[in-house]
Design a protein around this nucleic acid. Structure first.
Lengths: 337, 337
DNA sequence: TTGAAAGCGCTAACAC
DNA sequence: GTGTTAGCGCTTTCAA
């Protein structure tokens, strides 16, 4: 015989399938005796509910998707680590999907792939275009993390990237740094995370009356260790040698640290280094890395909450919600802390 | 109207539901004309298959569980990063679950939790006891990773931990190190990863005729940065100061590196450091860390393959399969590389 | 407080 | 090459 069904349990306990269902779902109006009998039957038969039957009937899977670029990026692993228990606390299971930061995979995620797996999606996009959202032909509830597509398109949680970068830059300026490079930055283009943080950097320079240095805003192919190392090496060997590196995530900062070490530069004596995300490695590296710490538990809580709200409301088409998560600058050895 | 079903598509295209199903499932014997018409209807209606109906009918969910202690441990994030595309390549979706290394969560994982979510489980256990497997009252296909419970209980993939540790220790001995400490090791107790690696360490010492130093096998509460730092500090300040640290994973090694730096020790001049797992951080730390690199893609491929085999065979009760994944020692700066 | 009947969306088996 | 029928396991009426 195959796996026991609710019918088998019912037969064994001498009740109807509906009664078993009532017990399984903690329905109140079940006599203690019946409940006990059903429980016993469940144990005896080793019954486990078949989620497919339930979700077919209920029209909900009890699962939500968390789509991130890459679990190899510690920030996303840490984020997942916070999202999963938060979802579990609220009775949902999380399906993690890696997009690789590729646009077609991100589009697939906001479309619910080709199958309707989950009740909603939390996506941390990198390549998604505003028009991809506009074209979305589904009511699949969606919450966006980090990247700031034109507000109003979807629910969204992020830190205040402009302020965060402004504070980090102001910190470097207050240490007398004037030739501050931005690794992973962008002086123009869409208002993605890199652009917003570069704007904050520019604002801090403006406020201090420091002119924007030439050629020190350096884009990178990705926010990985190797990219930080390459960029730092190029900047330090270039004509406009910086005295500080504002790295737009911690992996870039740690990669930069390594390249600086190899080229014989001392941090923070010759050059300061600052990162974003507060991944665990920055607390143990040599030197430890000053970083902007986003409120990860808060982001996870808000994202899950917003998504479940939308799912519960049937994703009614009202206006999108914007939430700003907290952040703080943790000054460590790499900038004199 | 709600989400379109296969019936709606059939009506729109003027065919039967079964024909739509055939098209969706890439069944061969469908005329091009029909196929095109169905495709068009699908696009027009924005139809996406409802996975619940399919899995109810097919008796398979197309999902497998990957249960790891903690995504914050880079090794497990990297492992997940390899398992997901491998599973996808084979048409399966991966549900990641964190156990926190807690026994009751690991038991729940091998039992399939209380719901029938997935078709099988890949578990990387830490606290699971042999008797937990013996007691298992389910036919849920299972593959174990890493920890070596009594062979024969379940399919199992791991590197040869004894050999790996022996090689790493031999490497340190060949550099003239004689007072080699083991952070995370165990001289007795169950044959878990820590014990096996300590056995390899002992074998290498024996082979070289080096007596086992006193008090240098140091257990740790967990394999995290902080634990490595604490252990390294204690060892270096203790009465039996080591000249090398064999750290049983890279997080321990990186934490140790930090503690050594803080106490003014130079690596590798004063003391060598070796880790396990080859996480990306070890390639960028200062100094870079010598480590045992397991064949992660191979582990992922074997684990997924073994699990799907079992699922396809209906988990017939034949003997468990043992697979040994490859590994190699990468000598880096922390031991003179 | 419990039970009977119906049907969620899909596909296997079989007919045509 | 395509359609009909039946039923996967569950929960939602509604009735008893």
């Amino acid at each position: 015989m195959g796996r026991p069904t609710i019918k088998d349990v019912a037969e064994y306990a001498g009740v109807s399938p509906k009664t078993v269902s009532n017990v399984v779902n903690d329905y109140e109006h079940v006599s203690d005796r019946t409940r006990a009998a059903v429980r016993e039957a469940i144990d005896a038969l080793g019954y486990r509910i078949n989620i497919a039957g339930r979700q077919l009937r209920r029209g909900r899977t009890g699962m939500i998707t968390l789509a991130v670029p890459d679990l190899d990026i510690a920030y996303f692993a840490e984020l997942a680590h916070h999202v999963m228990p938060e979802a579990e606390r609220r009775g949902e299971t999380v399906l993690i999907v890696e997009t690789g930061g590729r646009r077609e995979r991100e589009i697939a995620a906001v479309q619910g792939f080709d199958a309707e797996f989950t009740d909603g999606v939390i996506l941390s996009p990198l390549a998604l275009q505003p028009r991809d959202l506009a074209r979305r032909d589904t009511r699949l509830p969606l919450v966006l993390l980090g990247e700031c597509n034109p507000p109003g398109t979807a629910d969204h949680v992020a830190i205040d990237n402009v302020s965060a970068a402004r504070e980090a830059t102001a910190h470097l300026l207050s240490r007398g740094r004037r030739r501050i490079a931005v690794i992973g930055g962008a002086l123009r283009g869409p208002r993605n995370t890199g652009r917003l943080r570069t704007m904050g950097y520019q604002q801090a320079l403006d406020a201090a009356g420091v002119p924007l240095p030439n050629d020190l805003v350096k884009p990178v192919p990705a926010y990985r260790w190797a990219d930080g190392a390459t960029a730092a090496r190029a900047l330090m060997r270039g004509p406009e040698r910086p005295d500080a590196l504002l790295c737009l995530n911690d992996h870039l900062a740690l990669g930069a640290l390594r390249a600086l070490h190899e080229d014989g530069w001392s941090v923070p004596k010759d050059v300061d280094v600052v990162g974003f995300d507060d991944i665990e490695a920055t607390r143990y590296s040599i030197p430890t890395v000053t970083t902007v710490a986003p409120d990860k538990p808060g982001i996870a809580r808000e994202a899950v909450g917003m998504l479940l709200d939308r799912i519960d409301r049937g994703n009614a088409d009202d206006t999108a919600v914007e939430k700003v998560a907290g952040h703080r600058l943790l000054v460590r050895e790499s900038s004199g802390g």
